[in-house]
Design a protein around this nucleic acid. Structure first.
Lengths: 234, 234
DNA sequence: GTCTCACAGATACTACATTTTGGCTGAATA
DNA sequence: TATTCAGCCAAAATGTAGTATCTGTGAGAC
């Protein structure tokens, strides 16, 4: 939608999107030469984009070794989910307290957009569509928007992106089949419109924890991260 | 202490340290050419370091305009302080619950180090010493270390660094004169050793809010940020 | 079987070319 | 005469190409 102002920024955004969409597997090496050719640019602008992503903790940089898609780990997913629940519960309380009617309307619009966007594609039923992921991101962003803390919003977005990686790489599981995500979003929306912050926060937690359970039960993470390599980043 | 593994990483660390130590004023332009000469390297390396710092939200990047030391703003300081209080209160509860005797001992050591490090220098009484700032950082890091959430630790460090900028640029005020920072640290330490998480969190909040008050009452921020420029970053 | 060393491939860095920005000049207009 | 605006120019940011340095691997010697 919005044209990037410089080539470097453009590449940064594209690599970000490609990692989210599962273009490369966790742990995979991001080769500047290959990316430069792909985006019709030189290795330096790719390096710059990767370096910035490394600062955002969205790719891993190992000096003199290169850049890598982050590894997935059970414990990190648990940590992030818990932090998300806590942080967004607070943000949601503030939002419910401070948000006006305009926000309420915009939130309902965002929910409608999400509800009416096809979640899965016939071509690739194992992954959700780009459009749904975008709408999902936007709904959750809108949910806490009037909290009034830009810092909280940034953090929330960052955690959303990180967990998105896990969602992408979780294989469809039995738990996922028995889930009604749309109903969960609807419940949260209703609680917010009813201005019941406590209920909304509880439902949001349930929503996030359910997502985590689905990812964990898919068993894919163990397949990617061998249990042997428990090396800690000191 | 630890030698950086590549030139780029080294420059990254040095620029970070220089901004923290108040080398350049908030809003000031960071010129790659000047920095390249200073660190005996080329502009590309500097650009990469600045790009990474931009990803870490520690410098501001404006496409086609360059890099800048972040502006200081009252509202941001208030936001960050509130988020710090909330986040670290939680982390501290976890730490008090999970931390063992080894941690308790290490924390006491970190406090002793902090208490015995000269806070101000005779040469420059308006600013605290590098050594004290480092010890201060380490004490607060150690305080919440056993919380078990690397994500929380990272966030805490990032918020610490951002507020450090404000502390650096706050002129000495009457409020600062009447303050006994060492006593505040000692109280927090005592509460932690007594395993009183609620009291410790309350004292930590008081500690952070006092710092904010001192910065606000110094009046320097208004001097740097003219009230006229209330442009929002959309 | 282990160690050493050299070679291939990739990363980090430098120097240079291109593009953009922002201010300056000066003429046209009110 | 003051103001505005188009066009030009220097400075700075972005992007390219090529060199230097590092890492990991594999062959060969002990």
């Amino acid at each position: 939608m919005n044209k990037e102002s410089s080539r470097g920024s453009g590449v940064h955004g594209q690599i970000h999107a490609c990692i989210l969409s599962g273009e490369w597997a966790p742990g995979e090496k991001l080769k500047p030469a290959a990316l430069a050719e792909r985006y019709n640019t030189s290795t330096t602008v790719v390096r710059e984009a990767l370096t910035r992503l490394a600062g955002e903790k969205f790719v891993v940089m190992e000096p003199n070794r290169g850049f890598f898609v982050p590894e997935l780990s059970l414990s990190e997913l648990r940590d992030i989910t818990e932090v998300r629940c806590r942080v967004e519960a607070w943000a949601l309380e503030l939002a419910v307290d401070r948000g006006d009617l305009t926000w309420e309307s915009a939130l309902m619009a965002a929910h409608h957009q999400l509800a009416k966007t096809p979640r899965r594609n016939a071509d690739d039923p194992t992954h959700v569509t780009e459009a749904w992921a975008d709408a999902h991101r936007e709904f959750h962003r809108k949910l806490i928007e009037p909290c009034g803390f830009p810092v909280l919003m940034d953090l929330s977005q960052q955690l959303h992106d990180t967990t998105e990686l896990y969602r992408r790489w979780a294989a469809p599981s039995t738990a996922a089949a028995h889930r009604d995500v749309e109903a969960e979003h609807k419940e949260i929306l209703d609680a917010v419109v009813a201005r019941d912050a406590v209920l909304a926060a509880a439902l949001l937690r349930k929503h996030y924890e359910f997502t985590m359970e689905v990812v964990l039960s898919s068993g894919l993470i163990e397949g990617i991260n061998t249990p042997a390599q428990s090396a800690q980043t000191a």
